[in-house]
Computed example of a mutant assay.
Amino acid sequence: MNPVPWMPAGTVYGALLNFRREHALWAPRMNDAPYKGAPKAPVLYIKTANTFTPAGAAIALPAGASVQASASLGLVMGEGGVAGAVLFNDLAIAHESYYRPPIKARCVDGFLGVGGECVPLAALGGLDGIARLQIGLHINGVHQQTTALADLVRDAATLLADVNEFMTLRSGDVLMLGTDCLADGTRPLVHPGDTVEITAPGFSPTLHSFTQEVAA
């Protein structure tokens, strides 16, 4: 019997602008209205429970939508701190707003592909070991992107500490470290019929297929 795929037991949060390349691309606009300055605290968004798709399942894409795939790693909270980590495919409809993360673009049904296992933090070498990880994203078996966690603006320990200054992460909650963009500022696009695989050392591959949403 196959084990039941791991699924989040709490709230899943993601961090925006937490990779150096994307932060640098947005830097010229950070002084524009309404904020007129770079963010001083982590910019977070929520992936609601309706977005959770277990490992190996299919994700339906809305008709006509341009959907981006993004590899991410999430820290899973336990009773005494970080219990482990999970790979995610954090999907979103392409959009321009990052200071005010659009719910309609990020929280579409099924738009968080969840890895099948939570790997204990100790097995990854702790938070320092996570900083050395590289995450691969493949579409239909073709490598599209490598995300190096060494390129984070706030590494895992720093992001966790900064978030804990203004909110409490409870056991079962997940804090995703962020997603990186490609060199041109975009992210890989997925289409009906595609299969996306996300890989990292120490983790089983995270695989999701994509279908066309059926009109009601």
Rank of each mutant, 00 (worst) to 15 (best):
N2G: 03
P5T: 02
W6F: 13
M7H: 12
P8G: 10
P8I: 01
A9C: 06
A9F: 05
A9R: 11
G10L: 03
V12E: 00
V12P: 00
V12N: 01
G14N: 00
G14E: 00
A15L: 02
N18I: 01
N18F: 03
F19L: 04
F19K: 00
R20F: 00
R20S: 01
R21I: 01
E22A: 03
H23N: 12
A24Y: 01
L25F: 03
W26L: 13
P28G: 04
A33R: 15
A33Y: 15
P34K: 12
Y35M: 04
K36S: 09
G37H: 02
A38W: 05
A38I: 01
A38L: 04
A38Y: 12
P39T: 07
K40M: 07
I46S: 14
I46E: 15
I46V: 15
I46P: 09
T48G: 07
N50T: 04
T51H: 05
F52I: 12
A55Q: 07
I59G: 02
A60C: 07
A60M: 03
L61M: 10
A63G: 14
A63I: 13
A63N: 14
G64T: 06
G64N: 05
S66T: 06
S66L: 04
V67M: 07
Q68R: 11
Q68M: 12
Q68T: 09
A69V: 10
S70L: 08
A71Q: 05
S72A: 13
L75G: 00
L75K: 00
E79C: 10
E79N: 14
G80W: 06
G80A: 06
G81S: 06
V82L: 07
A83P: 00
A85S: 11
V86Q: 03
L87S: 05
L87T: 02
N89E: 09
A92H: 08
I93N: 04
A94L: 11
E96G: 14
E96V: 12
E96N: 12
S97W: 09
S97C: 11
Y99R: 12
R100M: 13
P101W: 00
P102M: 00
V108C: 06
G110L: 02
G110V: 02
V114R: 08
G116F: 10
E117H: 14
E117D: 13
A123D: 08
G126D: 11
G126H: 13
L127S: 02
D128E: 14
G129Q: 05
G129W: 09
G129D: 04
I130V: 15
A131Q: 11
L133Q: 05
Q134A: 07
I135C: 06
H138E: 12
H138G: 04
I139Y: 09
G141Y: 04
Q144V: 02
Q145R: 15
T147S: 13
L149S: 06
V153F: 10
A156M: 01
L160T: 06
L160Q: 03
L160I: 10
D162K: 04
V163R: 03
V163S: 09
F166M: 05
F166R: 10
M167D: 13
R170F: 13
R170T: 08
S171Q: 15
D173L: 03
D173Y: 11
M176G: 11
D180F: 08
L182A: 07
A183M: 13
D184V: 01
T186E: 08
T186I: 03
L189M: 11
T195W: 06
V196E: 08
I198C: 10
T199R: 14
P201V: 01
G202W: 12
F203G: 08
F203V: 07
L207R: 14
S209Q: 10
S209C: 10
T211L: 05
E213Q: 10
